[in-house]
């Protein structure tokens, strides 16, 4: 029996890392589907990439900067406008632990 590429515990761990709570059903589903997808993806191993540089950017751009000049910032009210929980000055979040 072929060893599973990805197991339910892996999916759980990844969910924690990505801060997404998955239902039991989702964990089982993803274990199956991601297994299939990862198997398909492994066909990249057929390709010889010795001495090939990765392409992190398709264009040969370098040294794109901005000058250290202040521009008007967005108002506090606008930035806080969409916040789910806030007071006049701050975003509010629950305790860490």
């Amino acid at each position: 029996m072929k060893e599973k590429i990805i197991k339910k515990e892996d999916v759980e761990y990844l969910g924690r890392l990505a801060r997404i709570e998955l239902t039991e059903e989702e964990k089982k589903k993803f274990e199956k589907e991601l297994g299939k997808i990862l198997e398909y993806i492994s066909k990249l191993n057929e390709v010889n990439t010795e001495n090939i540089e990765p392409t992190y950017h398709v264009l040969p751009l370098k040294n794109v900067f901005r000058d250290d000049i202040p521009e008007s910032s967005t108002s506090k009210e606008e930035i806080l406008k969409n916040a789910p929980d806030k007071d006049d000055d701050f975003f509010k979040v629950p305790r860490i632990i």
Partner: peptide, 22 residues
């Protein structure tokens, strides 16, 4: 004078959330 990746001011001690942008 300004932040690393945007043009907001870096001055210390400003009222909260006033040197901000998207």
């Amino acid at each position: 004078k300004t932040k690393m990746f945007c043009s907001c001011l870096t001055e210390f001690g400003a009222p909260p959330n006033t040197h901000v942008c998207p």
